[in-house]
Structure formats: C-alpha cells, structure tokens
Amino acid sequence: MNDLLIAFILGIVEGLAEFLPISSTGHLILVGHLLGFEDERSKTFEIVIQLGAILAISILYRKRLVSLFNIKPILKKEKKFNAIHIILGVFPAVIAGLLLHDVIKNYLFRPNTVVIGLVAGAILMIIAEKKKLKPASYSLDDLTYRQALTIGLFQCLSVYPGFSRAGATISGGLLARASYKTASEFSFLIAIPIMIGATGLDLLKSWNYLSTSDIPMFAVGFVTSFVVAMLAVVTFLRILEKLGLTPFAYYRMVLAIVFTIFVLL
C-alpha cells in the first residue's frame, strides 16, 4: 500500500482514538498489523502523529494551559484549578512509565497483549459506569487535589498497551466523583505532559530511523492526526454526556473478539 495512504489512515486512527477511551496505541498496533506496517519506521511514525494530537488538545485548551502559570491561586489557597492538580495527575504515571518503559516496549507492544488490554479497560469502564456516584465536581475548578491524585493513580493502568489512558483516567474520575465533563477535560490536560514526555523519549531513541525521504509520509500523518483530534475531542464530550462510557466499553470488547477471531487465531 502507498506510504501516504498508510499515513492518512493511521493519522485518522490516532486522531480519533487518542482522547477517546478506546486506546490509540492499541488501535495503531492493530491497524498497523493489518496494513503490514510494523517495522522500526512505524514506531517512529506513531510518535510523530501523536505529537499532532497533542498540538490539537493544546490549542483547544490553551487558556487553561496558560492559567497554570499563574501561582496566585496556589499562594492564596483559592479553590481554583492550578498546576498542582496537573502535577498530582501526572506524577504517578511518570514513575510507572519510567520504571516499566523498556519492558512495555520490548514485550507488550503486540496484537495479543493489546486485545487483553482492550478487554480489561472495557471492564473497568463498565464498573465505573455502574458504580458512578453523584458528582462532587462539575468543573475543573471544583476538582480537589485528592481527586486529581486518584485520577493520576488510575492513569498508571494505561502504561499497558490497549488499556487506554483516556479510559483509565475518565473511569478514575467517575469513581472519584467527578462529572463526565470534568473527568474528560482533566484527562485531556494531563495527557499533554505525559505524551510530550513519552513521545520525546521515544523520538530520541528512534532518531536514527528517521530519513528525509519519510518527511512527506510523516507530514501527512501529523496533519491528519491534528485535524481529526480537534474534531474528535469536541464531538466526544457531547456523546459522553448523553451516552456515558458503556458504548465505548462494548465497542472495545467487540473489537477484541473480532480481531482475535480473524487475525490471531
């Protein structure tokens, strides 16, 4: 298949899946397997298109990101979303990622392990939906430090490919009594430092696999991921408020079953 077409398809997959609770890493591995795009270059390509998704969320939430540099609410102990929330939401996953990075990359980035992650993440999402309590936080400014840390701890589950960072954090948010909107927006925001750190580390390690001849392919994937992610985030928030996590959980299970039957068996 033409490289540019592969880039376009995978850019769409990344843009749609990165901030939805369906696992972008899992989908990229599965779709890459189906397209026969699984060499070292593919790993570098996935890193580049993730940067497109990061840029999309950074633009959509630029005002919130800028406000994090204001330390007055912290000094005055105001009930306002601030940088400490981000630190608490990011720190646990950073530690888990650093400790397990090589093991994950070397042993878990395979279609069969992704299928396990898809099912496990779906079960957590259904549990979070069923046990959902009345929200105590209806906006980011209502979010407590304890809730931020709880969501951060749930984010550690996403180091397993296929589990889904968004699925883990939004589920954790619901169990911590945050509303759908609050849990989702916090999930988007803590994704930025996590993804920048992870993609930056991977990009440094994969630098030798980059070639000037790959620039058109990488550019198509990056731009496609950016545009699709912008549209996906806005649409997802509307769907989540109406339908909850359950449809996404069932989709994950169906995908795991179909892929197991037609590809792995």
Rank of each mutant, 00 (worst) to 15 (best):
A83E: 03
Y180G: 12
R238L: 04
N112E: 15
K79E: 14
I239H: 07
I22Y: 03
V263C: 11
G89W: 06
G244F: 08
R238E: 05
E14M: 09
Y251Q: 03
A232D: 01
S213V: 14
I192E: 00
K76M: 10
K76E: 15
D214N: 14
I59D: 01
N82H: 02
D142H: 10
L140G: 10
L231Y: 00
T169H: 04
S164K: 13
G172I: 13
N82Q: 03
A96F: 06
L240A: 10
I116L: 15
A53S: 06
R41P: 02
V114T: 07
Q155F: 14
A176D: 06
E129H: 11
M195Y: 00
H27Q: 14
V119K: 14
L255F: 07
D214W: 14
F262R: 06
A176L: 05
K43D: 07
A232L: 03
F19P: 00
L210I: 15
I215L: 11
D214C: 07
I84Y: 04
A83R: 04
L99S: 06
I57S: 00
L210V: 15
A148L: 07
G32A: 08
V31P: 07
A128G: 11
G172A: 13
I239K: 06
G221I: 11
G221L: 12
Q155S: 14
F262H: 06
L60Q: 13
T25K: 10
R252H: 11
L133D: 15
A148T: 05
T44N: 09
K76T: 10
K43R: 13
L100H: 03
Q147A: 09
D141M: 03
P161A: 12
Y250G: 08
Q147E: 10
L65E: 03
I127K: 10
I151D: 05
M217S: 08
V227T: 03
G52S: 02
G117I: 08
I126Q: 11
A83K: 07
F45A: 15
S187H: 08
L243C: 10
V115I: 15
L255E: 02
M195H: 02
F37C: 06
L55F: 01
